[in-house]
Design a protein around this nucleic acid. Structure first.
Lengths: 209, 209
DNA sequence: GAGCGACGTTAACGGCCATTAACCGCACGT
DNA sequence: ACGTGCGGTTAATGGCCGTTAACGTCGCTC
């Protein structure tokens, strides 16, 4: 499935992708030049074209890659199915947190630079994202049946925003370490979902917007 | 309420800033050219230089402006002081939600393009942001005294991520309307803060914080 | 021991784009 | 009427940057 580019020790490509992700996250796709990316891996500028068709291709591979990994991970956890829907939701949350904490640059690029992709790639990434969201929505609605689908979807988006907030954080030690951070984020996410259900429909009316 | 369409005097400058914000949010600072910004307000390219020193100046004004408005709004609500700390926190949340829902492009640009500013402006914006965060942290800790300051700060950042998630949303009607969205976001934010306090220190171990 | 393919290098090229130059008209106060 | 200045215009200019060309060097296989 997908394009397995060999489970190979694809050292160089991966090294480039990693540095590119870091730089894109720091300064934006348009803000970093190919020379910088090259320099980051010890070769210079056009040398990158031995590994990638172009700068766009690097971004595309990054975004498609992370989107697929998120979705695959989510599907896996749903398939495993815990003791209860609640356990599955816990697993989804923990999995996403691991991503957010361990691949910060990737997460940052993921929701900032989507629009810099060529049409085809963008549609592909969007589809993966959408499926990932729907995965969550389904599970969330099993745990908290009351809210409408629209509300559940909005809540999922919002919780993604919450979980992905780590990358934006001011650097140094004014924040909890990784373990505490993970615990905290899980509590916050669960608290948010729990509150989503409370008082649904009250004072609602037709609302219409 | 919120942003009055304003028969305001400063017509042109503000019009330019508004369109620039929209474009920057859509395609990133480096992704939009001055010609586009000009076109968006019916003049072309270099005509903008009658109003701004350069493209950077527009971004700077946008970011400083929104940061100041957020901070001023927050201070105002704190100064007004509600019945209780809880009421103040509610007011902060509602105020931020109004911002997130009414000035989506601005919010987007605000936490994406900070690094494209010149040193001086960047420091200024960062200071405003930091003060805004500290304002929230103080109030949050009054309402939920248990967590450490580091945890409270991380939670505030996370809730900002939650509240600011609206801009990223897939366009059309698969989501609640503005009124319902505001209600939902408030519930989620309150739920997250509430959960932050639950079980603090349990199973924690030394937890470094 | 020659050839070839993977990987790099440096030097163009070409396009985009922010900014500046040079020039224009109209509103308006005097 | 007049000139002055604000808000525009179009045409350079100059730099950055992605990409391509042309060329070199290993290391491997036949």
């Amino acid at each position: 499935m997908s394009n397995a580019p060999a489970p190979a020790p694809t050292s160089r490509r991966e090294q480039i992708l990693k540095e590119a992700a870091r730089l894109f996250a720091e300064r934006g796709f348009h803000g970093v030049g190919v020379d910088e990316i090259g320099a980051a891996v010890g070769i210079s500028g056009p040398g990158l074209y031995r590994h990638f068709a172009g700068k766009d291709a690097m971004l595309a591979e990054l975004l498609v890659g992370i989107s697929e990994r998120l979705l695959d991970g989510g599907r896996m956890r749903v398939a495993e199915g815990g003791e209860s829907p609640g356990a599955v939701l816990d697993a989804l949350i923990d999995g996403h947190i691991d991503f957010a904490l361990d691949d910060r640059p990737l997460i940052t690029v993921h929701d900032r630079e989507l629009d810099r992709l060529r049409e085809a790639d963008r549609k592909r990434v969007r589809r993966l994202q959408r499926e990932y969201v729907e995965l969550w929505v389904t599970v969330v609605r099993e745990v908290h049946p009351a809210p409408s689908e629209a509300e559940a979807r909005a809540a999922v988006h919002a919780v993604f925003g919450l979980l992905n907030s780590t990358p934006h954080l001011g650097r140094p030690g004014s924040l909890p370490g990784r373990t505490d951070m993970a615990r905290l984020l899980r509590r916050l996410a669960l608290g948010a979902f729990g509150a989503m259900a409370d008082g649904v429909g009250v004072a609602g009316g037709p609302s219409a917007g």
